[in-house]
Amino acid sequence: MVLITLVSSDEQNFPVERELLKQSGTIETLIVNMNLDDEDTDAAAMPIPLPNVKGDVLEKVIQWMEHHKGDPVKEGDNEDNNAEIVVPQWDDDFFKPAMYGSKHLELTVAASYLDIKNLLTLSCKAISNTFKGKTGPQIREEWGVPNEFTPEEEEAIRKENEWSE
């Protein structure tokens, strides 16, 4: 089994099975550019630095990729916007402990940076699920978003919103 080492921004090393990394467009490109798949190249001696991902986040990303090993890798933009995406139970449980905190947001940003489309889609969908049926102030409170509106502005938006059922 070929292992490739990923190095997080806080210089933690993560040896990862080569096969798993096919899920990340960014890492896959680096592997190809660095010829790490060549038999003559000593992949173990050439760690891949990921300066935008912290160790604890990278650990979660790897955990997610391990669970989704063998899943079809999504390519290109999501062309099927009409299909409602359902977050599988395992992923929901995976996201839940960190939801509403910066850790989940960092995981989402890492998914975008590493170009792991399935993780990005599910993570975004999980975030959007937290908005369902909530009011603006509830979303604000749960996600710790500061209230920038004056009472007058808030009232004006409320009135616009009241117009719909």
């Binding site: 959007s128 909530k134 979303i139 604000r140 978003v145 500061p146 920038e148 409320r158």
Partner: peptide
């Protein structure tokens, strides 16, 4: 509907 609520966050 949730978009309407989101408008009120920030």
């Amino acid at each position: 509907k949730d978009r309407l609520a989101l408008r009120l966050t920030c």
